[in-house]
Each structure stands twice: as C-alpha cells, then as structure tokens.
Simulated scan of single mutants.
Amino acid sequence: MTSVAADLTEVRAAAELLGFALARRARPVEGGQYRALLDRYRSELRFRDVVDTMAEGLGLEVLGTPRSGLVLAPDPAGPFATRLGDLRSTMDADDRLVFGLVLIGIAAYAYPTDADFDDPETKLVEVATIDGFIRAALGTLGSLAGVEGSAEERARAAAQVYADLPQLITTQTGRRARGCTLKAVEDVCGWLVEQGAAREAASLGPDTFHLTDRFRLLVADSAGGGALDALRDLRREDVP
C-alpha cells in the first residue's frame, strides 16, 4: 500500500469516527467499530492529529474521549452549531428564553464547582427538583446587572417569563401541558436525551435523567456568564 493510500485510509477512518461522534446516540461498545476507532484516537498520535485537523476544518473541537465516546464542541459560527432557532418551530421568543434558562439551570445544578467538571461520576437530575431550583433563583437572576442585549439582560427577561408561568397545567389525560414550567423542564431534558447529553433513568422514575459525559464536557467548555455563575453560586450554598 502506498503512503498516499495509507493517508487516505486514515482520513476515511477519521471521518468515520467523527460521524459516530456526531450521531450523538452512538455508543462505543466493546468489539464495535466506534470503539476500535476511539481506541486508535486515544493511542495513535498520528491518527489523533488527522481527526483533530478534520474536526477543526468542520468547525468542531474535540473536548475529550470519555467512556461515552468522542465529545465534540461546535464553533458558534460553524455549520454544526445548535441555535435556539433550530428548536421546535412553534416556540416563540418567550419559549426560547425559558428553554435557555432551564438549560443553564440544569448545568448549574449538576456542576456547581469546577471540580465537578473533572468528576466522571454520573449526575442525576429530576424534573421537579430542577424546577424548584430555578424558581428559588428567580430573584437573584432578576437582579443581574447587564446592558440591553447582554446575556444578563436575557437572563432577567427569562426569569420574569418563568415567574409568570404556572408550575403545572395538565391535559385532559393528566399529562403536563405546554405553558407550565414543569413541562418546560421536561422538554429540555427530553431534548438533552436526543442530543446524547442525557439518558432516561427509567428505574428511578419517568422524571429522572442521567447527564452524560458529553453534557459535562460541553458545559465545562462553555462555562461562564453572569446567569450561570449566579446559579452555580446558589447551588454551592445547598451542597454540603
């Protein structure tokens, strides 16, 4: 095999590994192709360089290789960036504010300290607990200082919208209906499952979720901002 062919083989393998990582729900099980490629990335410097270079060209950054697989972070301006506008088409501006608030609420609740970002232990979150945590923080979020258009200003607006929503509205069948905060938290948890950032903890109840290493590393990479910092501060007060 020529050196060019060998290089092309590595490029193909690198693309395949990135494809597994972008699939989100793919798991590197023992004996599978994803696991074999992940092991190559961990052990072969040349192959790692090919993967990292290809990822960079696609607007992606490799954050780590935990047990759950290769974790990628998209460039905010890149083609793989997730934007609130990409969410459910029926979401209005207030829905998006609440979605973002719940997302950082989950992050703050699960990872209140920097040491938590290095802890591979699975974090559990529960819908009602997250809702209660956010509700208790609304006063703090509402007092954040920030100019118009800033993240802090959006956090204040999100806190006001959240405060105005009822905690629970039910459908005729007894399920949570849209327009209440418990449903908003449930929807975000479901979205995290779709992204491979959480798994349902069915044995612990329908409202409990395991956060994956993917979510931990993504939060660690993007941690910062007045709203997230304020929520993490509040959460640290509750942690022994």
Results as ranks from 00 to 15, higher is better:
226 G>N: 07
112 P>R: 06
211 L>P: 05
47 F>Q: 11
237 E>L: 14
198 A>F: 00
184 A>E: 15
152 E>I: 07
34 Y>D: 00
222 S>T: 15
85 G>I: 06
157 A>V: 05
195 Q>F: 11
154 R>F: 08
103 L>M: 13
147 V>K: 12
199 R>N: 12
204 L>G: 11
54 M>Q: 13
77 A>M: 13
120 P>F: 07
139 G>E: 09
81 A>W: 02
236 R>C: 03
50 V>Y: 05
113 T>Y: 10
57 G>S: 09
143 S>F: 06
184 A>Y: 11
167 Q>I: 15
58 L>N: 08
41 Y>R: 13
114 D>G: 07
201 A>H: 00
10 E>Y: 07
114 D>Y: 08
126 E>Q: 12
155 A>P: 07
6 A>L: 14
146 G>H: 09
166 P>G: 04
197 A>Y: 04
224 G>V: 12
234 L>A: 04
29 V>K: 14
206 P>A: 14
79 P>K: 06
160 Q>C: 10
172 Q>R: 15
164 D>T: 11
123 K>S: 05
55 A>C: 10
134 I>T: 00
18 L>Q: 05
75 D>F: 08
192 L>E: 02
50 V>S: 00
174 G>S: 02
109 Y>W: 12
95 D>M: 02
186 E>R: 10
214 R>H: 03
219 V>T: 15
46 R>C: 02
208 T>F: 11
204 L>V: 10
23 A>F: 00
85 G>S: 10
25 R>C: 09
41 Y>I: 08
62 V>M: 07
125 V>A: 10
210 H>K: 12
72 L>Y: 08
151 A>L: 11
180 C>T: 02
224 G>N: 06
173 T>G: 12
216 R>N: 01
193 V>Q: 12
7 D>C: 10
70 L>S: 07
86 D>H: 14
194 E>A: 13
93 A>S: 12
29 V>E: 14
127 V>G: 06
187 D>S: 15
47 F>G: 08
111 Y>F: 03
178 R>W: 12
221 D>I: 05
46 R>P: 03
209 F>H: 07
163 A>N: 04
50 V>E: 09
57 G>H: 00
23 A>G: 00
170 T>I: 14
104 I>G: 00
50 V>M: 04
42 R>F: 09
44 E>F: 07
170 T>P: 07
127 V>Y: 01
116 D>R: 01
188 V>G: 00
72 L>R: 05
104 I>H: 00
